[in-house]
Design a protein around this nucleic acid. Structure first.
Lengths: 331, 331
DNA sequence: CTGAAAGCGCTAACAA
DNA sequence: TTGTTAGCGCTTTCAG
């Protein structure tokens, strides 16, 4: 840590400028000097200070990604897709989860001050802050979130998938569908609910929403308890994400309710557990969301492009045993 | 981005030193000047450059975590636990996944140059590099990896858990056990295999290892295909992690093999999918591993402690339907 | 091709 | 309490 460019310069018998050049541009110095410098650097175990370099270059060579949580598989996959792509673009990645953090806005602002650009996932910070960052000239890409002026966005398709899901549930015999989740908590969820309700309504089915606190398995368990003791069983539960659905399923099973005989269940995302549990769901390209965001952010940082771009990635309905009753339809 | 401490100083009619002080230590300046400075800063939408600050303070106020991959739930949980704890300690978190990266060592070295300390998870980089970093005075904490001189380490208990698992499998009627995974790929896996083999051997059962390439579901599927077509079915498969086990189970099921009737399966980690699939496994405190690492790294960075410390966190055997045959024992 | 010198934006003595 | 002045370790003109 102690050895600086000056030490290397002294040992190699050259100026610090030459060291700087020799260690980066291969061909701005003689092969001979370059060899001397490289040698000296190796001898001293010299590692250039990124701090010094970054200040001189006035860039961080790092960008950040802000997400609500890493506990479910969904955000983890998005972050991973992002990290892999960012690494290829030679950018370091700073992560920040706002989950339950008191001063999320302040923390994000501080994060922004140490990066060249930011990816903001879902509803982690206010639109106001996003706009302030954008206004300050900071490149921002929004993921799984309603676009904001001046920032790029990357989202997964919701509307059409919700229609297909509605069609499938109705085909499987569902007349009453309960949507589980909180549309107010995320633009994704709101879109899913509204599209599902519209499509199911057009098919003559009835959709009502059961608002949850949170999107984890525990929230699903609470919904199960509620359904068993009070509100009764609908023909189908359409959940805002897989964890909710899996928790719900677990709760119902424990209460003696059989799926898909007594009721149907669907999720959203297609996480690993959904595959092993046999849960019908909508597959999102989670990694691709992150990777695309990295690409867009890079374009923004390098100034390749002027106008904002808003990507919408395709999704798939994956039908499994949780919505395929023996007879094909329900009585 | 353009406004610097000098602009603020000019507008407030004070020196840059005063601005610097006013914006950090509340009580090193008059309330009056402080107000003027704060006002000027707000007017100009001034955000202190972290780069300038960091160079002057000669610290990054950031640390990094290196892990193989974020695709499975295991590392994601560790990273999350780490991030949450690090945030509380007011450190930014840089992440780096080495998965399939060509120059992992170089990338890690570069990461090290922009952080105050590093957490290295599993077998991501060579011991040689770890030792070089430690030798350079960089605080390093190893997670899920054999300790190295000069670095702290945090691991989950393997030996005792493996014994309990062996006992359970034998009690369930297993005489031939196949361990699935690659002991050479990770110290954790090696420990699990050896302890399991020893314990099962003592109980009169026979354990042999089936070495896999990778630890994902696909590797498990390959093992299933292999067992069905060639090597035959043991009484039980003990897998190095849950994903391997779930992939294996899926493959066997597709081939018409019934678990736990025809053979038993166990995993390791207790990820979400294991719970929903009914997989017997060993629960690791994944988040706690990350959180503890953050704490240890902080101690190292702040120099609270001289000697290295090596934590071993407790694990639990979780018995589920994949190893509980109807009769209680197998014929 | 190489060196001298001027910053990058901030903090931290040291004076006043 | 406040200002002046050195750096922090590097890159980058601008001369030579």
């Amino acid at each position: 840590m102690a050895t600086t460019i000056r030490d290397v310069a002294r040992r190699a018998g050259v100026s610090i400028a030459t060291v700087s050049r020799a260690l980066r541009d291969a061909d701005s110095v003689t092969v001979e000097t370059r060899a001397r410098v490289t040698r000296a650097a190796a001898d001293l175990d010299y590692v250039p200070s990124q701090l010094g370099r970054q200040l001189a270059e006035r860039r961080h060579a790092a960008n950040g990604i802000v997400f609500p949580d890493l506990s479910g598989p969904y955000y983890a996959e998005v972050v991973l897709g992002y990290e892999v792509a960012a690494a290829e673009l030679d950018h370091a990645v700073l992560i920040l989860s706002t989950h339950g953090r008191a001063d999320a806005e302040g923390t994000v602002a501080r994060l922004a001050a140490r990066t060249d650009g930011l990816v903001v996932v879902a509803r982690t910070v206010s639109d106001a802050l996003v706009q302030r960052l954008v206004g300050r000239g900071m490149p921002v890409v929004l993921v799984a979130r309603t676009p904001v002026d001046g920032a790029d966005s990357v989202n997964a398709e919701n509307t059409e998938a919700a229609s297909r899901l509605a069609q499938h549930l109705v085909d499987a015999g569902a007349q009453t569908i309960r949507f589980v989740g909180d549309p107010a908590a995320s633009s994704d969820v709101a879109e899913r609910y509204e599209s599902l309700a519209a499509a199911a309504g057009a098919l003559g089915a009835d959709v009502r929403v059961e608002v949850t606190t949170g999107f984890g398995e525990n929230a699903g368990l609470r919904v199960a308890a509620d359904a068993v003791t009070g509100s009764g069983l609908p023909d189908a539960f359409a959940c805002a994400n897989d964890e909710l659905a899996l928790g719900l399923w677990l709760g119902l099973r424990q209460a003696g309710v059989t799926v898909p005989d007594d009721t149907l269940i669907s999720g959203w995302d297609d996480v690993m557990a959904a595959r092993h549990a046999g849960l019908t769901t909508v597959r999102q390209p989670m990694r691709e969301l992150g990777a695309r965001a990295a690409l867009r952010l890079h374009e923004l940082i390098t100034g390749t492009r002027q106008e904002s771009v808003h990507d919408v990635l395709a999704t798939d309905l994956i039908v499994r045993s949780s919505t395929t009753p023996p007879g094909g339809t329900r009585p």
